[in-house]
Design a protein around this nucleic acid. Structure first.
Length: 543
RNA sequence: GGUGGGUUCGUAUAACGGUUAGUACUCAAGAUUCUCAAUCUUGCAAUAGGGGUUCGAUUCCCCUACCCACUACCA
């Protein structure tokens, strides 16, 4: 009988979820939805020392931003998420709230001879470790040393009983077989064999805080929550043998989930996995949302940097997975449709910030001008600019192809809203303004035609001659009187004047920049009055 | 050090024994243009090295190199 697919994302709330974690969650989600199963969010907060307030909400909010909603788990307010159709035998979803269920499983392992009580103090073990290190060796708590240590294998029954009662710092350790080949199968990596001789006796449960460690909690919860596939990061691969052995020791082998270990996300340059510092250093976010730590230091987020959630999800999906076709743009729904673990790669993927920007650009282009205008409006307001949506939408239509982010809009077209106060150094590329014969077949921008009036604009600003340099301006003024030209450009061409130079001079006056939008476009947006105003101002400043 | 995993253009990846080793990002050049973008076209650029297996290896096996992860009473 095939079981309903149930996968889980099990983060530890020790800080903001980093993009690698989001990807793991995404792959789990895609896998579950593709198979019509459940995606469960379980909070692994068994280490109270590392608990960070707000981290859990951050995780949930990050997933929600990406459009990932758990079928089971906790919501932002800490309430259990109930899927519509089912009762919930699996709750609670926070391990700290499941505290009471783990001990008996740990004891069960002791009873069956698969685990034992250990009384060595943390200090004693640290001492062992440094001792070994000094001798150029590595201390390992396993078959090779456990007979010399303080535990229920070496102590008498009475001693053990006393210690269990009197002390509160004992642990339960897994009794790793001394020499056994564990055969495992990974959905991504295939068959793997490991000899247990080199593995250690992991702590499964701690008396000190009455809580299990990751390994025990993980296996018990996956079992109880009826998880069918465990899809997690590659950093867990080394503990897979232990997990296999735990399922075996519990007698749960039949219902044991299948495992898939995802390749890691690597830093863009150099070696190693992606870390928070890389983002700070190289100017890209590593977190989905902005995060402020206890010291008040901020880490940027994709959302705050202006990435569309859809673009973020898309680029994340493509880091380690491919559809087998040349398609690169996928909606969440399409990803669900196409996703399969067989297409997940084995090797770590270096994150490429340039490609990330490219993805956002693609999504920006797919957006309607209206919705982009709505995103842009608050930005304008924050600059003290009141603009109506219709105007802003027109601006967006004009400039969206030049932008990667909505925030680029301001840089690209601020002068469509406010007059420039500074002027960029004026330069014309050599040859660019060379007088070529006007090309009559070239369509005239219809928006420029609206401004019949504006063809006089540069010339009405009589006092900007210094700004114009040379004698372009004089020539133009003289010739202007009897022209039939319908647009500024047409006129300039008709006069055989160096159009490149003129246009660039005007651009500088109108926008303050030496490059950018077309002159006709700028004029059409700001209108005749402002055009003249700006030309005069330019003369004043530059003359 | 030990154990495990990995290795195709700079990057992400395709090619599940037979291709001129494809695509995208980046970069460069050209076209276009009033400038800059955008767009279009073209170009640069890879199977880590060595052995096998095979008629034939990017693909399968072994060795070496390099990279990564793990090696906590953290997850």
């Amino acid at each position: 009988m095939t079981r309903r697919t149930r996968v889980r994302f099990a983060p530890s709330p020790t800080g903001p979820l980093h993009m690698g974690g989001v990807r793991t969650a995404l792959y789990n989600y895609l896998y579950a939805k593709k198979r019509g199963g459940d995606f469960i969010l379980r909070i692994e907060d068994t280490d109270s020392n590392r608990f960070v307030p707000g981290a859990e909400q951050y995780i949930i909010e990050s997933l929600a931003w990406c459009g990932i909603y758990p079928d089971e788990g906790v919501d932002k307010d800490g309430k259990v998420v109930e899927s519509a159709s089912e009762q919930h035998p699996h709750a609670p979803y926070r391990q700290s709230q499941r505290r009471s269920i783990y001990r008996k499983y740990a004891e069960q392992l002791v009873a069956s001879g698969n685990a034992y009580y250990a009384f060595d103090t943390a200090e004693a073990l640290d001492a062992k470790r440094s001792e070994a290190e000094a001798a150029g060796q590595t201390f390992i708590y396993n078959h090779s040393t456990r007979e010399q240590l303080s535990n229920s294998l070496t102590l008498s029954e009475q001693e053990v009983k006393d210690m269990l009662e009197q002390r509160n710092d004992w642990t339960i350790r897994f009794k790793m077989p001394s020499d056994r080949i564990v055969e495992m199968d990974d959905l991504i990596r295939g068959h793997i064999e490991v000899n247990t001789a080199t593995l250690d006796d992991k702590v499964l449960w701690k008396k000190a805080d009455e809580l299990p460690t990751y390994h025990l909690a993980n296996i018990v919860d996956d079992h109880l929550m009826e998880i069918t596939e465990v899809i997690r990061g590659e950093e867990w691969l080394p503990s897979l043998p232990l997990h296999y052995l735990l399922y075996e020791a519990f007698g749960w082998t039949d219902s044991q989930p299948q495992f898939a270990h995802l390749p890691l996300l690597l830093k863009p340059v150099g070696n190693g996995k992606l870390s928070k510092r890389d983002g700070d250093k190289m100017g890209f976010p590593v977190f989905p949302l902005e995060w402020t730590n206890a010291q008040g230091e901020k880490s940027r987020g994709y959302r705050e940097d202006g990435y569309f959630a859809e673009a973020f999800v898309n680029l994340l999906a493509m880091l380690g997975w491919n559809p087998g076709t040349e398609q690169e743009i996928f909606s969440l729904e399409q990803l669900v449709e196409e996703f399969s673990l067989e297409k997940v790669g084995k090797s770590g993927a270096k994150f490429n910030p340039d490609k990330a920007k490219w993805y956002n650009k693609e999504y920006l282009r797919m957006r309607s001008d209206e919705s982009l205008a709505e995103d842009f409006l608050p930005m304008l307001e924050s600059k003290g600019i009141k603009a109506d949506k219709e105007y802003v939408t027109r601006v967006v239509t004009l400039i969206k192809e030049r932008a990667n982010f909505v925030s680029d809009f301001w840089t690209i077209a601020s002068y469509l809203f406010i007059a420039p106060e500074e002027f960029e150094a004026y330069s014309v590329k050599a040859g660019a303004a060379s007088a070529k014969p006007a090309d009559a077949s070239r369509p005239v921008d219809p928006r420029a035609k609206v401004y019949d009036d504006s063809l006089t604009a540069p010339f009405l600003a009589k006092d900007v001659d210094k700004f114009w340099k040379e004698d372009i301006y004089e020539q133009a003024m003289n010739a202007l009187e009897n022209s039939d030209a319908q647009t500024l450009e047409e006129y300039i061409r008709e006069q055989g004047m160096p159009i490149g130079k003129i246009m660039n001079c005007i651009r500088l006056a109108l926008s303050g920049a030496s490059s950018g939008l077309g002159i006709a476009d700028i004029m059409s947006f700001i209108g005749k009055e402002k055009t003249l105003e700006r030309m005069r101002f330019a003369k004043q400043r530059l003359g």
